[in-house]
Every structure is written in C-alpha cells, then in structure tokens.
Design a protein around this nucleic acid. Sequence first.
DNA 1: CGTTTGTTTCGACATGCCTCTAGGTTGACA
DNA 2: TGTCAACCTAGAGGCATGTCGAAACAAACG
Lengths: 126, 126
Amino acid sequence: MSKQTAALTLTDLSAGQPCCAPIAEDRIPAETAALLAPAFKALGDPVRLQLMSMIASASGGEICVCDLTPAFTLSGPTISHHLKTLREAGLVTAERRGTWVYYRAQPGLMAQLASLLTVDASVPVG
Amino acid sequence: MSKQTAALTLTDLSAGQPCCAPIAEDRIPAETAALLAPAFKALGDPVRLQLMSMIASASGGEICVCDLTPAFTLSGPTISHHLKTLREAGLVTAERRGTWVYYRAQPGLMAQLASLLTVDASVPVG
DNA sequence: CGTTTGTTTCGACATGCCTCTAGGTTGACA
DNA sequence: TGTCAACCTAGAGGCATGTCGAAACAAACG
C-alpha cells in the first residue's frame, strides 16, 4: 500500500477511527477527500445502495449472496461486480462458509460517512 | 402519511422531509434508492467532496465561486461543471448577486443521507 | 458604448462504469 | 472420482463522466 499520503488508511476508517470534523465544520483536507470519496461513489448506484441496505439490515448481521441475487432482475455476475465494488470501498466484508458466501456490513466506515454529513444545528454560520 | 415509500421527491428531501429508516434497519425501497443514489454519486468525487465541504463550512453559510476556483489546480469550467453536478443532486443552491455567484449548502438532503447511514447500536443483530 | 472580469456553456477527447456472456474456481455429495 | 451448484473473474460493447480550450453570456466600470 504505497499511496499513504494521508496519515489515515481505509483500515483505520473501517475500524471506526475518527477521521475529521463534519463536512460543515471545516474544510476537509484533500487526502481525506480522496480516501472517503470512493466510499460515497460506491453508494452512488441504486443497486449498490439497496445491496448495502439488505446487508446492513440482515438479521444475524450477515446475508448470503444467494439471498441477494434473486432480489434483482440482474445477472449473477453483475451482482457480484457490485458486491466487489462495495468490498473494495471497505463498506462490506465477505466470508466463504461451505458453498455459500456471506456478506457483512462494516459499521465503522458507515459511521464515518454519517458523521461527516451530520449537520450540527449549533454549527456557527459565521 | 407515515409510510412514504415512493411518492417522495428530491424537493421533499431537500426540505428535510424524512425519507426512511436507516439503511441498517430495513431494506430501502427501490424508489428511495433511485432518489438518493445520485446524491451519494455526486459526493463520490474528491473534488466535489472538498467543494461541498468548503460550501457547507463557509462562514455566513455561503461562498463565492471566485473563492472556490483558486483552491484547486483545475480550470474554471471544470469547477463549474462539478458545481453543476452538486446543484443537480440537490446538495447546494446557487444565487447570483451582481458579478459573483454564491453557493449555499442544502442541509436537509445532507441530513437525509447522514441519517440513512447512521448505525444505531441498538439495531438488532439477530 | 466598449472593455474588463467572472461564470457558464459548448465541443471534443480520454477514461471509467454498467451490463452482459463465457469460462474458471471452490465446495458438497453420491 | 464425477457431477452439480454457487460464486467469481475475464473480456467486450455501449453509455456516462472528467477534463480541457474556446466561446458565449452577464455584470460592473470607465
């Protein structure tokens, strides 16, 4: 991992390490933007947003690909591609158990994105 | 009118109308995903994420394009293009006053996205 | 009225993304 | 061991996006 420009890594973020103040408090540094933008980008597709929702809301905290694929009118490989995108963004993790692959949400990064967008009413407008 | 699944518009969201439960509570409907994905997509670029941050954190709640452009090593038209993307996503609004154009964040939609990503510790994991 | 300054639009090109089909890999089971 | 099911990877086609330079538009000012 050579692109260590920022002192923060995706692993840190997934682990829930705080990254920065909310977007409305201070201008975020370029390194942070470069690190978090891919996560937002991954959520920028309706299919992936629904996949993320199904994974995050799954009972037991995980869900099988075999339960995800039939929920869409898309081919298996296409769903697999979207899951890979979510995986590479650090939003989910995958684990193979026997025949099936189970996906699990990564609450740390989700919380980071949420806190970044949080608009605090007490944020000074001046 | 407690269960609004599809009859929601971007205007509603920008105005701060609640759209749905957090992503980790229930699977979001396809209509909601189609409505919110463009907003995440708009934030999925490092330049736009920084622009959004500069706008949202601007003192006075607004900022001039003439203050945004010099902050990047990109051409004016390119910055304008990114601002248009944020505008069309409903994340910011623009107003021309004299020579300059001022941009202002749209806290309603930002709050929607934040609440969607919020992970409640009390979310049942089983 | 013409010039200057700030901002957006237009046209073009390179790159990236979404989707598919085809094929490969992994694991279960007779 | 052979076969089948589940899942992923590879490659291609078509469309969208990011970026630029040039030009158009808008407002202020002399």
